[in-house]
Design a protein around this nucleic acid. Structure first.
Lengths: 288, 288
DNA sequence: TGCATAAGTTAAGAATTTCTGATTTTTATA
DNA sequence: TATAAAAATCAGAAATTCTTAACTTATGCA
């Protein structure tokens, strides 16, 4: 069945004449006549009563024309969808690391629900490495990760935010040097399996003394809580320390140029993604 | 835009592979590939990211595929409509004479609403002649009229019911002969412009004596009421006399074979109408 | 890394479909 | 009844779409 035939049928139903319909549709009468005939054989239905000169729609024909209008309406919506494509249109599958999701997602989703009604975001969380692989294989359209990710070949890497890494100690260790800390408290190490964990391992190498003990946790919030309760000291991105620490721990920088971690958006580096990557980045940066 | 392209798009979205989709749709891979390319240029949209081997749908592409599913669903409804055509399907424009509408319509519509959900009847009332012309010209699909209609050339004429015409007099004239009546009471004549009115005129010619006075009314109900109140005598179809008379008038037949009027369905005598004429007739006869 | 294989794309020709113009048939109107 | 208008039919032309074959590109495995 041809969509064109449906358009023709609807026009005929409107003007009640083959010849006038043909005129309006810029086609010849025989073409129109044959379209209707093939439509009738396709549907195995008598749409017209041809015993009268402008052929009359049969009752069934009228109903078919009504339904044809509905088909065309849905088809119009389809073209509108593409015409109104502002870049953020469709279902986006996006991966995001745990830490980022807590801070970014709520504001991002609120913003986007307002300004990009054509977009539908599905988030799933995971570790930077996993997400990187999924973007690479096309399972995800994009991912919000932290650096130290896998190979970025074929991917774009756009920084959303840079967060300095600060050392956090219990309040009563505010004046202890790093050496003192290393001797008296265990170091709380966010899991080295994560992107940020790798940064922490590197930071640890530059400490003047190796901590006497190391506790590995896989939750930022749990790490901060542990420091609050005086169970150890740690190094984490400043925003996380501020968010969970709530003033109940002492924060210091290490060295002149503190280590920092990037939160970045990765996407496949293809032309198709160029249409929306910029839009997405803008909203993500605004949501930090 | 081709409906076929939408079908293949939906299939691709389902199986996530061009080659598998082509296989399932019984077409060659190049054909499928080109369909998608022309669809993309038609819509001026990038539906696929072709940098990966099974090309991935872009976010916009996913949305377009969703909408394509809707287009196809409406198209399916269209074919179903025709497949399930039991003869009474579509919008029927039907004319009906006033007298018949009162008695037939309610039961007919109730029956049809139950047994023919695909049909949608629009009734308009008028005189037999007018309705006959409208059926002839195709403005109406059918009409319920009374005989004595115009020329029936090109029309089918199927009797729905035959109603005998009886003479009605006030109760206190139950024993008066027609001659007595003609002398003492005016004759109440339903408008000769109508089909039934013409029959009445003919009946009047066969009366033994010409009534002294004639009152013309254009309402059956008003005629019967007038007789009830002793204002005259009349001749009308028996069912009407019983309906409005409610035992408050005297009814007699005239001659051995009383005159009768037919209520009939007329339609254009075309093949297209053969599919539903029988169905319609059956329900009308049941609704009497 | 590099080759082999699978998956898509491109290109040219064939087949189908659709359209046009001329002609015939049918219906409506004077 | 004649005439004009409208639609159907037919044959050939034009435009699509499809298929086969050659080519390119991604992916997986040694």
């Amino acid at each position: 069945m041809q969509i064109r035939s449906l358009e023709t049928l609807v026009r005929i139903a409107q003007v009640q004449s083959f010849s006038r319909a043909a005129e309006l549709l810029n086609m010849t009468l025989p073409a129109l006549s044959m379209q209707m005939k093939t439509l009738e054989t396709d549907l195995r239905a008598a749409l017209f009563d041809r015993s009268t000169r402008p052929p009359q729609l049969t009752p069934l024909g009228r109903r078919v024309a009504d339904q044809a209008r509905r088909v065309l309406a849905e088809q119009d919506r389809l073209t509108e969808l593409c015409a109104s494509d502002d870049g953020l249109n469709g279902r986006f599958n996006i991966g995001i690391i745990q830490t980022a999701s807590v801070r970014i997602l709520p504001r991002f989703l609120a913003d986007v629900a307002r300004t990009a009604p054509g977009a539908d975001f599905r988030f799933s969380s995971g570790l930077s490495e996993t997400l990187g692989a999924m973007v690479h294989s096309g399972q995800l359209d994009a991912a919000i990760i932290t650096r130290a990710a896998p190979d970025l070949r074929g991917l774009t890497y756009d920084v959303i935010a840079t967060e300095p890494m600060f050392i956090a100690t219990p309040l009563h260790h505010a004046d202890s040097s790093l050496n003192d800390l290393a001797r008296s408290l265990p170091f709380i190490h966010f899991t080295p399996a994560s992107g940020i964990g790798k940064l922490i391992s590197r930071a640890l190498d530059h400490f003047p003394a190796e901590p006497q003990g190391i506790v590995i946790l896989d939750s930022v919030e749990a790490s901060v809580e542990s420091v609050k309760y005086g169970l150890g000291y740690t190094i984490l991105p400043l925003p996380d320390l501020e968010r969970y620490g709530e003033g109940q721990l002492h924060i210091r920088r290490h060295g002149d140029r503190p280590m920092s971690r990037d939160i970045a958006l990765i996407t496949r580096a293809t032309a198709a993604n160029d249409t929306w990557r910029g839009h997405l980045l803008g909203r993500l940066r605004a949501a930090i």
